[in-house]
Design a protein around this nucleic acid. Structure first.
Lengths: 214, 214
DNA sequence: GACGCTATCTTTCTATTGTCAAGATTAATC
DNA sequence: GATTAATCTTGACAATAGAAAGATAGCGTC
């Protein structure tokens, strides 16, 4: 039984370097933003040589893809949680949108990485699965509100005006917010902004209902 | 009278290096995207030493800010042109939104630079003026549709659900489109997508009218 | 328990980048 | 025409990503 050596200087093998690198990358993103991310700084924080990450993630973009994947998983979880707390279908859809925007405000650099970066490896299976799952929370609830049968796939969004509108309004608010286009940032302003977001999404939900019943 | 020397090997002074650098930067953005942009490559394309740009733009971000500024000016012009061709206020608002998305589809990297980059010098006066002008085309037309008096400022968008919604839906569609989230890209697909965008914005405009009259 | 295999990690090297400092060259001004 | 200011070059520095080659240690097999 390989007894874990008790704290040598620096054990040659890290133990769980992949997880440590992801955590370090998340911290760097939060502190310095996406442009402030460097693979070497990541390695430094994990107390490991600058070439070590390559064995787990290939290159810098591979690590970023893993970080983005975990970001999608957290976003999915956030949206599901708030949706389950709501009884009404319409308010559930609004709550999902608010959670989406709140996620962006809480993790702006991560959100940018997930949605606005060309440094992601889209052929990565885990990544696309995580992105798909997040999308389906939104599209599934929308289909419920609209009284539709099956939710649409992502690539069909470009051909369905209603789904496009619903996703776009939420995503647009999130994007504009973290870019500082909607006024100053800060705890107080963010809360005020989320109130406005909730109001705007309620109006949207009302419009969806009117359209599908009219 | 300083007669322009007829084509020496390489004239020590470029003549209009600032413009040449901006043009080179735009070309690089179009070819290789924002992450593919480098200051040295820019200098190479302008046939100038790697340190020359500093005298005109300070640093790399200064050049990018100038490029973004000219991007906002073009976007403003595009939106104004299509709006003037429309008679009805509602269709003008729709046309502005379509122009916004079309601009993003035509210049995706430039659009990302303008809206999703932290490499811009927001204290630059020309830059903020250009951004403000673009915003006011949209908010002005929205105010007209809603029967409002004065259009709102950008920082008030975070407190006004209707304006927030209107900007967000257009910006969200543009963003999702250039990130490939709405299906494959390409001439045919883009045209199909713009039709969907137009349909979606028409539904939005109808909703605005219903709300302000109800 | 010994052997070998393989994953993990380090060191070293190359090419590239942005920025700075100092000098060269030209245009503008008086 | 001389001085000043703007423009551009050369050379250097620190930092980066990635590749190559070697060191170390965990793991299965016999």
């Amino acid at each position: 039984m390989p007894k874990p050596m008790r704290k040598q200087r620096t054990p040659y093998h890290h133990g769980d370097l992949a997880a440590a690198l992801i955590a370090a990358a998340q911290a760097i993103l939060a502190e310095r933003g996406l442009d402030g991310f460097t693979l070497r700084e990541c390695a430094r924080r994990a107390s490991v040589s600058h070439a070590a990450p390559a064995h787990h993630f290939g290159d810098a973009n591979g690590l970023l893809t893993a970080v983005a994947t975990s970001g999608y998983e957290r976003l999915t979880q956030d949206m599901r949680e708030v949706a389950e707390r709501e009884q009404d279908r319409g308010t559930a859809l609004v709550a999902i949108g608010v959670a989406y925007v709140r996620f962006a405000l809480t993790h702006p650099a991560l959100f940018r990485l997930m949605f606005h970066s060309d440094r992601l490896d889209r052929s990565n299976d885990a990544f696309s699965a995580a992105g798909k799952a997040a999308f389906e929370v939104l599209s599934g609830r929308l289909a419920a509100v609209r009284g539709r049968e099956a939710p649409l796939t992502r690539s069909e969004t470009g051909r369905n005006p209603t789904l496009l509108r619903a996703w776009a309004v939420v995503h647009g608010m999130a994007t504009l917010a973290i870019e500082g286009r909607l006024g100053p940032r800060g705890k107080i302003h963010d809360r005020e902004l989320l109130d406005t977001v909730r109001a705007a999404l309620s109006m949207q939900a009302d419009a969806y209902r009117r359209e599908s019943s009219g």
